[in-house]
Design a protein around this nucleic acid. Structure first.
Lengths: 211, 211
DNA sequence: CCTCGCTCGTGAAACCTTTCACAAATGCTC
DNA sequence: GAGCATTTGTGAAAGGTTTCACGAGCGAGG
């Protein structure tokens, strides 16, 4: 059903296409051409068609793609058919911003637990969830049948926490800590590193200035 | 001085190497081999050497790289020699998390202004900065000699704000809004899209389950 | 001061991703 | 129902990035 190996860049674009398909759907458009999708997504029509072709062929020649069925299929491909249960590790300001972000639940990601190490935070309520003790991490993850962990801790404890998460069976981690996590085969980590993003912008500024 | 075109992936790795070099420096290590750096950064020694080779050759054969000079050179390459002034557009929770993040100032990024549209927020103080009216965006950017804008608004107003930022000369934007921004040649945008990250993790979960 | 072991620097090869270009297929119009 | 305009699906080509492999150069140690 799913082909062997799909490039990460392709998967990211599929997620972006899905967003625009949903927009087209809201606007009542029934079909959309690869070119229209490409323009919105900042890519080319050939890229769109190639990306989709990895999973079959859903277009109609001369017309384009039917918006609703394509969106459904993309959701299926991306595994958004069921809700994913997410735990947030660390209850600082970034965690507060994340639980607040309505986009999560709108797209099927449900935050079921927040843990922290700081006794001053444990017991407090964040967006309806009581912050729990990170000491109970394993219990919290099992109880919530958590699939995805979002790590928003300082760099120091990050690796140890990941080791514990992996040990209880977590295989998908979104990491905001500025460290390169070591994980075994079969565990996926996506890093979001604000410092790296800013530094690439800084590089771009310098590179332009040097020209 | 700077070579033609450096891949984005290379620049990102340089930023990561820099982080580890600083760690080695704190630990008092004088030299480091490409292999040690590679292991920490999750890549290969050949990759490290290739990345560095684009900018010259700073290693000593048989020995490795001198930690301090290499770190200095990387900072220079990345344009971290002087502080960058940053404005934050949008004063929601994510903005609060960002101004709070000490990593910014530690790495030479200084937040000089925060603006928002909401009258209820304007005038409030966030980490020592008074939130200003987004209507005065152009004035704020000029006054602060802002180089980098961080966009943390909802998707709706994002493009219009970017147009205004570009018009006042901003050429580097870090975008957290879940839209694909259209900018003219010569303006750099880095996107951080939490929904896309989560959806790629969701895909990875499905793809593994299907195997 | 010669040899040895180590690690860099780098062209070449392998691999992967994107772009191109065009045949094939569809809907629409007349 | 034939012809036309349109847009998909996809091999092939181009372009880009990573890995390989090895010569070159350096320091250490005798």
């Amino acid at each position: 059903m799913l082909p062997r190996k799909i490039a990460d860049s392709t998967v990211r674009r599929l997620a972006i296409y899905l967003r625009f398909l949903e927009e087209f759907q809201r606007q009542g458009q029934a079909t959309v051409a690869s070119d229209a999708l490409a323009q919105r997504a900042g890519t080319t029509s050939a890229q769109v068609r190639k990306d989709l072709s990895f999973f079959g062929s859903f277009g109609t020649r001369g017309l384009g793609y039917d918006v609703v069925p394509l969106a459904d299929r993309l959701r299926e491909i991306l595994g958004l058919g069921h809700r994913h249960r997410v735990a947030i590790i660390g209850a600082g300001r970034l965690a507060a911003a994340l639980v607040d972000y309505t986009g999560f639940s709108a797209r099927g990601f449900e935050i079921v637990a927040v843990v922290d190490r700081d006794p001053a935070r444990i017991g407090a309520v964040l967006a309806g969830l009581t912050i729990e003790d990170v000491a109970d991490l394993e219990h919290v993850v099992r109880r919530g049948e958590v699939e995805i962990a979002i790590l928003v801790t300082p760099a120091g404890p990050a690796q140890a926490l990941v080791d514990r998460l992996v040990a209880v069976g977590i295989t998908a981690i979104l990491n905001f800590a500025p460290v390169q996590l070591q994980v075994p085969e079969g565990v996926d980590v996506k890093n979001v590193n604000l410092a790296v993003e800013l530094e690439t912008l800084s590089y771009a500024l310098s590179a332009r200035a040097a020209t």
